[in-house]
């Protein structure tokens, strides 16, 4: 029973973290066709925005979240105007944007090291403590993270399904030409999605750094890499599938950590990803239609 709870709680904690990292990633892929290798630093930017607002500006701690949202907004804006805007019409966008975002990740990471040093800091926006059930602690922050991941997924789902903007986003993702012919300003849609992804990543970053990881320029790297596997398995572009896969994989990882060794969490995920992709090259629920040549 204790073992079960242990696995359950660590699975929930990890799963919430992965889900937070995967949502923004899969949104960008689904709409813009962009695998964002800067997702990790975008998470860290959110963490630092919150940290700076509370520590340097002396704002009360709940204002860390709006500060992160502003940081994410700016990041999305900059990404669009510096990179995406010039690239999305050109051939081989899918590969070019991966290279460009690897470059951006390194630039931003170096800048963060310059400003904040590489030493881990404490995220002041956090809720310490937790419930004790059967002698095992379930941290409050895990519950917050799960709720935030859930709210973001539902909110995003509602936006995409039921609003005029959301329909335009889906239309652009599915048939860019046809959407344009109906008067959809594709450039603006891409900008809006880029900003949404920036904000989602920033919020996720605050939650992540408040929970398991400390705040450092590399804080987002591991969650991003795990999110890669999750998205590969779930299929890029499908948000609910990404969240579901996050939880399932986190439980698998949790069980392996408990029964074998923490070392083999990553390799197990890779193995699963390879098996799934050999079986289904676009993931379990991937959208093949997004692929552009």
């Amino acid at each position: 029973m204790e073992a079960f709870l242990q696995i359950l709680f660590s699975g929930l904690t990890l799963g919430a973290m992965y889900a937070l990292s995967a949502v923004g990633l899969t949104l960008l892929w689904g709409v813009v066709g962009m695998l964002n290798m800067s997702q990790g630093v975008m998470l860290a930017i959110g963490g630092y925005a919150s940290y700076s607002a509370i520590t340097y500006l002396g704002l009360p701690w709940p204002l860390g979240l709006p500060a992160a949202i502003i940081g994410g907004f700016i990041t999305g804006l900059v990404f669009y105007h510096v990179m995406v805007r010039w690239m999305y019409r050109a051939p081989a966008f899918e590969v070019n944007i991966i290279i460009a975002t690897v470059g951006a990740a390194i630039v931003l990471e170096s800048l963060m090291i310059r400003v904040f040093t590489g030493y881990p800091l404490d995220q002041p926006f956090s809720l310490p403590g937790g419930f004790r059930i059967g002698g095992i602690q379930l941290p409050f922050q895990t519950l917050i993270n799960l709720s935030v991941a859930g709210i973001m997924t539902l909110g995003l789902g509602w936006l995409l399904r039921s609003t005029r903007l959301g329909r335009a986003i889906r239309a652009t993702a599915q048939r860019r030409d046809a959407a344009q012919l109906l008067g959809v300003p594709v450039a603006r849609v891409y900008l809006q999605v880029m900003i949404m992804a920036g904000i989602i990543a920033a919020i996720s970053g605050v939650m992540l750094t408040a929970s398991v990881a400390n705040l450092s320029p590399y804080a987002g790297t591991n969650p991003m890499l795990k999110a890669f596997f999750i998205c590969a398995i779930a299929g890029l572009g499908n948000i609910p599938a990404a969240v579901g896969a996050s939880l399932i994989l986190a439980f698998i990882e949790g069980s392996i950590q408990y029964s074998v060794s923490a070392r083999f969490g990553f390799p197990t995920m890779l193995g699963l990803a390879i098996v799934v992709l050999i079986w289904r090259p676009y993931g379990l629920f991937g959208q093949r239609t997004v692929e552009r040549s």
């Binding site: 695998l35 899918e94 890499l225 990553f266 090259p281």
Partner: peptide
């Protein structure tokens, strides 16, 4: 194709 190759190969290096 494309992005999925990148995902899997970088995963290999990370592991």
């Amino acid at each position: 194709r494309g992005a999925y190759v990148a995902l899997l190969t970088i995963g290999f290096a990370v592991v």
